[in-house]
């Protein structure tokens, strides 16, 4: 969903840049509350993993593909502020080094694919966990739905921005329908990849899943002298 140069007029491109910069500043401030000895080394890995996963375009319909956006996944694994920073780093690297996503559209891309996916994805995730029983299955199921919803949300954000400052006069209703339709399909792929990744980490190191902290308080690491020497 990387917007190239020339899709948006100057005011909306600049506006997107300002909103993205503000969002990143907010996340820098919020991230240090999330970063501890467990999440800090994870954050770099999450960014690298999302970069890798975004290279894997999967077919969704005839002649159309999609790839992971990763906002929901990152937010669940390392926290929403740190997660948004991870995706922002990925978008910056892709734009600067790989010519993927226009440099003038970097702000818009960060708004759509980092801020919106994290905000919507993490809100859905936490909302579901509040009503579901406190189990590992609930964490995985919530991550599935959160990821699924986050992709059409990003698509809708793009359409709204295009309505304000798109460079071509197009039938917006048709664009919205087409964008939502295809991104619900991509969202299903996002949901499976996110749930699979979260389930894998939950199975091996549940203490490394930021979003599962409130669910699994009994899994805090404890050091007991009796276990010295045994592993």
């Amino acid at each position: 969903m990387h917007v190239p140069d020339g899709f948006f007029d100057v005011p909306v491109s600049v506006g997107g840049g300002v909103v993205a910069a503000g969002g990143v500043a907010l996340c820098l401030r919020g991230a240090h509350r999330e970063l501890d000895d467990r999440t800090a080394p994870m954050a770099g890995l999450v960014a690298a993993f999302i970069f890798a996963a975004q290279m894997i375009n999967f077919p969704v319909a005839s002649g159309t593909s999609g790839h992971l956006l990763g906002g929901a996944l990152a937010a669940i694994l390392v926290g929403p502020y740190t997660g948004a920073l991870c995706v922002a780093v990925v978008l910056l690297v892709q734009g600067v080094f790989f010519a993927d996503g226009g440099l003038t559209a970097l702000g818009i891309n960060m708004v759509d694919m980092s801020l919106v996916t994290v905000l919507v994805g993490y809100a859905v995730f936490r909302g579901l966990l509040r009503v579901l029983p406190s189990t590992r299955k609930s964490v995985v199921a919530s991550s599935f739905v959160a990821a699924l919803v986050s992709v059409p949300a990003a698509a809708l954000s793009f359409v709204l921005l295009y309505a304000v400052g798109g460079t071509t006069d197009v039938p917006l209703g048709q664009v919205a329908t087409a964008m939502l339709g295809v991104h619900i399909l991509i969202g299903i792929g996002e949901a499976f990849m996110t749930a699979l990744t979260v389930a894998s980490v939950m199975a091996t190191r549940p203490d490394l899943v930021f979003g599962a902290r409130h669910v699994l308080p009994t899994l805090e690491l404890r050091t007991t002298p009796a276990t010295v020497g045994g592993s």
Binding site: N57, T64, V175, H183
Partner: peptide, 16 residues
């Protein structure tokens, strides 16, 4: 990975 255009690029091409 699929070489097809992604969702946004496809809709962008279809709708101009």
């Amino acid at each position: 990975a699929s070489d097809s255009p992604d969702g946004l690029n496809r809709v962008a091409a279809d709708k101009g």
